[in-house]
């Protein structure tokens, strides 16, 4: 469903060239929930943002459902983006618009007729359990509720793919769990393929069918979470996957903490 073929991202900060993402390939099957885990600066958000070309790759190709995004014209790309939903760490809702208007925005972008828009807005807010908040403004909602409105917005155009950029990193553990349950439900009920970036191992463990560990702009290993025992090979993978909390207690000779 999502394929990255030797994509890389290189940019200049001041006088130095930075390789945010080194040539990387990744294939995500339809219906899977692919996690990308790593610490800040690992390039995981950049990789995610290349999936809908918010970030233009320096080289390589991106395919969504067989369509090569990297070769599309501006108009075609806009069209393709309508079937790719996205949610963000800081929700990125329109603050001067109501929740309903926030969801309606993307339906307008897809040029849906007014009457169908109203109906779809209601449906989407219903899915995330916020139908009664339709006329409220984002500032009147809690963090978890804002993220749910963002999920409703991302779902409105029946996307094939949902991109999640640290969706729970600004939320407390209980709210995090409720958001993960919504994402799980969306994946199950609407067959939406999810690519999720996080630095929280609990999030990856709870939600993902596959987890890619990313370090210094490269995927160092890909773990299959459906196996009874997940055995990471890299020091970073082992650190992350150590039984709950052990990661902070044990010593990790292979992991160069000073690098982070």
């Amino acid at each position: 469903m999502i394929t990255f073929k030797e994509v890389s991202k290189r940019y200049k900060t001041g006088r130095q060239w930075v390789d945010a993402v080194k040539p990387t390939s990744l294939h995500i099957e339809k219906g899977h929930i692919q996690g990308i885990i790593g610490f800040s600066g690992a390039g995981k958000s950049t990789l995610l943002r290349m999936a809908n070309l918010l970030e233009q790759p320096t080289a390589g190709e991106v395919y969504i459902d067989g369509q090569e995004l990297t070769g599309l014209s501006t108009g075609e790309l806009r069209e393709a983006r309508r079937s790719i939903g996205m949610i963000f760490q800081h929700y990125n809702l329109l603050s001067n618009e109501t929740c309903a208007a926030n969801v309606e925005f993307v339906l307008k972008a897809a040029k849906l007729p007014s009457r169908e828009r109203k109906k779809r807005v209601e449906e989407c807010l219903e899915i995330v359990g916020l139908a009664e908040k339709a006329r409220q403004y984002p500032a009147q909602l809690s963090g978890g509720q804002k993220q749910r409105v963002a999920i409703a917005r991302a779902l409105a155009n029946n996307p094939k793919v949902l991109l999640c950029d640290e969706p729970t990193s600004a939320l407390d553990p209980v709210t995090t769990l409720s958001i993960l349950e919504f994402l799980e439900k969306i994946n199950r009920e609407f067959q939406v393929t999810i690519m999720l970036v996080t630095h929280e191992i609990q999030v990856a463990k709870r939600l993902c069918s596959r987890v890619a560990v990313m370090e210094n702009g490269a995927i160092t290993e890909q773990l299959d979470m459906s196996l009874p025992a997940v055995k990471p090979a890299t020091p970073l993978g082992q650190f992350l996957f150590d039984t709950e909390g052990e990661g902070f207690r044990g010593s990790h000779p292979g992991l160069k903490i000073g690098d982070y």
């Binding site: 806009r78 996205m86 990125n92 925005f105």
Partner: peptide, 10 residues
């Protein structure tokens, strides 16, 4: 917020 709109294909 602008980015979210771009991502939605507006």
């Amino acid at each position: 917020v602008i980015e979210a709109a771009v991502a939605s294909g507006a």
